[in-house]
């Protein structure tokens, strides 16, 4: 069996690939922080909110976690069209990603909050802190620290999941790859390169998020404890 590898498309389609990379990165970068905030709010709402907030949070989390991302994306994209709301493919993709990753983040953060010993909360409320001061000032920092590795994995997964966004014509990396192989008939080589790029992007994202951790968790930095 002999197969002639041909990576000539790299020269010709280099700029397109780069645009795809930027779009993938852009969607990811735009979704991480809002997704984290949404998830954290949901976790807190589900754990400590009034009954109606708990119910809303549960419905949201379960609806998202039990349907495919691509369906959520279509639903949002075409749903907005029905409502005569015009937004571009990029904002629609980011919105879908935020909603999607928010639900997973909510579950991760809920586990984080629940893993904090009751004595901590009791001690804090015995110091006359209000309920919300305890949640945001005492529980949240510890919860994030405890579940940080799980959060990092979740955001890497989210970045990989952007690969479906060409379905709504947001031509990110995978969408670009599809077009290149359609022109060049070099699908094997194209997707090999694309896979390599995703590996590099995932590594870079992990690195950046771990960098954030050293800023966010001074104790880890000081004591040199790995996450």
């Amino acid at each position: 069996m002999s197969y002639e590898f041909d990576f000539a498309f790299l020269d010709e389609y280099g700029p397109e690939l780069l645009r795809g990379v930027w779009l993938t990165l852009g969607m990811t970068a735009a979704s991480v922080l809002p997704g984290f905030l949404l998830g954290t709010l949901c976790a807190v709402g589900r754990l400590y909110g009034p009954p109606w907030v708990r119910r809303v949070a549960i419905v949201y989390v379960e609806a998202i976690r039990n349907t495919p991302l691509v369906i959520q994306v279509f639903w949002l994209f075409f749903g907005l069209a029905v409502l005569q709301v015009r937004i571009g493919a990029f904002p629609a993709a980011v919105l879908a990603l935020v909603i999607n990753v928010g639900a997973y983040t909510a579950e991760i953060m809920r586990a984080g909050f629940e893993s904090i010993p009751k004595g901590q909360v009791e001690a804090a409320s015995c110091l006359a802190l209000t309920r919300s001061q305890v949640i945001w000032g005492v529980q949240l920092p510890q919860a994030v620290e405890r579940v940080y590795p799980a959060l990092v994995s979740q955001f890497v997964l989210m970045m990989l999941a952007t690969s479906i966004m060409s379905q709504i014509s947001a031509e990110e990396l995978t969408g670009v790859a599809y077009q290149i192989q359609a022109f060049t008939f070099r699908g094997f080589e194209v997707y090999l390169v694309i896979a390599g790029i995703y590996v590099a992007l995932a590594a870079a994202l992990r690195l950046v998020l771990l960098g954030c951790a050293t800023v966010a968790f001074p104790r880890r930095r000081r004591l040199g404890t790995p996450l």
């Binding site: 010993p117 004595g119 901590q120 009791e122 001690a123 804090a124 005492v138 920092p141 510890q142 620290e145 968790f217 104790r219």
Partner: peptide, 10 residues
């Protein structure tokens, strides 16, 4: 003050 200290570890 409690038996288990309950300091905030972070």
């Amino acid at each position: 003050v409690f038996q288990s200290y309950n300091l905030f570890p972070h």
